[in-house]
Design a protein around this nucleic acid. Structure first.
Lengths: 211, 211
DNA sequence: CGCATAGTTGACTACGCTCAACCCTGGTGG
DNA sequence: CCACCAGGGTTGAGCGTAGTCAACTATGCG
């Protein structure tokens, strides 16, 4: 996530940096609401925000944005925000005014490339989530999720509370808990605190390719 | 979908157009497979493709791309295709080689802007689907889907077979059928062939805002 | 030490999936 | 003009599983 090619405020032209504004959010605080006029693109310096939309009678969680990531690039081409952003913990964000950003993009092809790359990355991330949520069985969803997190080695460290993982998976927390318990007693994984390790046996059969 | 700002092959620089290649697909034919080296971005001239990924023992449908739309822009920044593309009917696509495209982007900020806009549009579309598939109840999913299609007026024309709509919603076709039947007998909607009309009563209560 | 929150486990319910039969439509050929 | 056929669409019955509510435990912070 902290690849050299990711969008960071430091690489923005100084003229743009002058327009940025920082903002600190406390847990649960709403940064912006779906439907409001889109005024800025954001970069998360610290913490984690939840992107979600509120439809009549229920909250739909989209995904989380973590420290080091940017979000809201699609708002550059849209009049209003398409979803709401809420801090899940104490967070700090930088707001980059939309108009200034657009001008900077026109002047710097390099910046445009970086932003496109950033968008492509997020796009893939959301597609991955879409794929996950299309799986009906909790078991498949969870194993696939773990498989995707399994970059190298055989151990995964969950950075978020299970509650949040569950909502990312579109599952009730109880179901996630139960499913992990089942996977553990089946011998597929073993757990310790927030870290999960796949069994040798499982790795041999299912490789570690992402397919 | 045919807005003036959308990406069409005609607006590409002539040098790029020289590199493009056309291809006709018959129903069910596979254009490209997940995991293959990413070589091109595509534009659908005619027909409809299904983007999907094949995981062990099941097919996961992502979404459809229709005539007039482009897809695969994320592959510009990736070594391999992230999902497979299959024609659902006789289709014609244009392939734009990745390398040439990247060069053109560097030379033309205007093109970059158009492509970014296109990506933003697709991004929103996928986010919408993500939102849809996060709804548990079939009823909510279907009504929300219809609500989103309801651009203006009170009638929706379904361009796809219900089967395909169901797979876009992540539902079994039978469930979609049943749900529509229930909505109809509850008086929420009325149906005629492939067109669906919301009742006056429903529209008054739920407005036609998207959220 | 105690409180608040996250995580776990159990029992029950509800609803979406599956399989199967049937209907309806549009296209083809006699 | 009708008979036939194939595909999508509809409806029914039964099952499995994820959601919900609830009680309880574990964990972390003041």
């Amino acid at each position: 996530m902290n690849a050299i090619d990711s969008l960071t405020p430091e690489q923005l032209p100084p003229s743009l940096q002058a327009m940025m504004s920082r903002q600190t959010l406390s847990p649960g605080q709403i940064l912006l609401q779906q439907g409001e006029p889109a005024k800025a693109v954001f970069f998360v310096e610290l913490g984690r925000l939840r992107l979600a939309s509120f439809t009549e009678q229920q909250v739909i969680n989209h995904y989380f944005v973590e420290a080091g990531e940017s979000f809201g690039e699609t708002n550059l081409f849209s009049e209003t925000y398409s979803c709401s952003a809420i801090a899940t913990m104490t967070s700090r964000v930088i707001a980059i005014p939309k108009q200034s950003f657009l001008e900077a993009l026109g002047q710097s092809p390099g910046l445009a490339a970086v932003v496109m790359q950033q968008m492509a990355r997020q796009f893939r991330l959301v597609k991955t989530l879409l794929e996950l949520r299309s799986l009906r069985s909790a078991r498949d969803r969870v194993t696939r999720y773990l498989q995707l997190k399994l970059a190298a080695g055989s151990t995964i460290n969950l950075d978020k509370p299970l509650k949040d993982v569950a909502s990312e998976l579109g599952l009730a927390p109880e179901v996630l808990s139960r499913t992990l318990a089942r996977l553990e007693q089946e011998g597929t994984i073993s757990r310790d605190r927030k870290s999960i390790t796949f069994s040798e046996a499982w790795l041999e059969v299912n490789g570690n390719g992402h397919g």
